[in-house]
Amino acid sequence: MAAPLNLFTVGQRAMSAQLVRMNAAASNLANAGSVAASEAEAYRPIRAVFATEFDRASGLGTVRVGGIQRSEEAAVKRHEPGHPLADENGDVWEAPVDENAEMVEMLDASRQYRNMVEALSTAKQLMLETMRMK
């Protein structure tokens, strides 16, 4: 059985989950505009899907990355006969990455990460005050 959750494990796991989310968005951004020789080979954006882990003993709920989902979006076909990766029709397949959506995703992840840090530091300060009480 897993150890009961405390405030700090909740915070740590939430921050790692946000980091996974940010990494996924960064991978997508890095692959924006990359092309492949066929539709199957083209890069598809990934997304972290979060799930709650509830601990009945302490009444706390933390978050874990339930899985990484690959988007089903179709690759964008572009006619470019001069491209070295072009198929017999002269087409290349571009990764369907929406840069704006990825930027928003990253912004949201970093905001939530920061929120978590702030909440943790407040909680830590209160705990320290309680411990120092004589």
């Binding site: 405030l7 909740v10 915070g11 796991r13 939430a14 989950a17 946000q18 989310r21 979060f50 709650t52 706390l60 709920g61 933390t62 978050v63 949201d108 992840a109 939530q112 929120n115 978590m116 909440a119 943790l120 909680a123």
Partner: peptide, 8 residues
């Protein structure tokens, strides 16, 4: 804190 952790 649990709520903030599960914001997404």
């Amino acid at each position: 804190t649990s709520n903030i952790a599960n914001a997404a």
